[in-house]
Design a protein around this nucleic acid. Sequence first.
DNA 1: GGTGTGATGTTATTATATTACATTATTGCG
DNA 2: CGCAATAATGTAATATAATAACATCACACC
Lengths: 138, 138
Amino acid sequence: MSKYEASNSDLTKNQTLVMGALSNANGPLSAYTILDELREHGFRAPLQVYRALDKLVEFGLVHRLESLNAFVACQHTSCGGDRKENVLFAICEKCGSVQELANDRLLDVVKSLAIDIEFSLSESVIELRGLCASCKTS
Amino acid sequence: MSKYEASNSDLTKNQTLVMGALSNANGPLSAYTILDELREHGFRAPLQVYRALDKLVEFGLVHRLESLNAFVACQHTSCGGDRKENVLFAICEKCGSVQELANDRLLDVVKSLAIDIEFSLSESVIELRGLCASCKTS
DNA sequence: GGTGTGATGTTATTATATTACATTATTGCG
DNA sequence: CGCAATAATGTAATATAATAACATCACACC
């Protein structure tokens, strides 16, 4: 199995459980929140969660939010391809919702900036903090 | 003292010590690394470091790197002004060096993107990962 | 001199993540 | 099939990062 061909049906038992927890959630979850939710399914230790998360992130099915130390299910209809690293997030500081975006213009600017400073770019962490559309008005 | 007027001479004893540790370092330091370096100066507990860091970040003299859980001295000749949040970082995954940048074009794109999705932007976390110019060639 | 505010000290605790090692499951191949 | 290699899992312990709670100290200001 190529690392780009992983689909939900290929996932192992633990990966499926973690993916399910993240898919059911309406926002990002911490590893320990996932652990607590999965105790009823036999999870006992953080490592069971972290190992599953590592693989899910590798498959592109889950993203790690660096500024939250949390994880969120990919919102693209088909992630796991070459756009895996080309995403950014708008994180609402009021309701905690996360909107995942892929913006070519922004990523082009990032890439050209990297070239300008002779930086060999492997990944961009872009996380916008603020208020989402609905929290902004309420 | 306005929060924009803080200079090194205004800093308290602990803030000065933490600022010194970060200024001497050639790259980012974790709060606990700072703690260890400052034990000889009487530091005993993490909170002494975190409280100083909170203020230094507020003053714009130090930036927090979200993807590293670490802190770095501001590299601008004069930070602490209105550009405080308008910076991004290129983090070398080989040597650990961090280059701080202020790029208007990138930040304009971020702002217009936020407008597009009706997101009220308060802060942008932009951290590029890859290889710096010198590590790239060696 | 008393009062308010900010800084500091200290202990304990919570939150996040990894190391180390043993075991089990699955895959691929002769 | 039987075996070896690889991947996944289980478990305990530990490392790392950050905060809570509470007491005390320093100092400006009236």
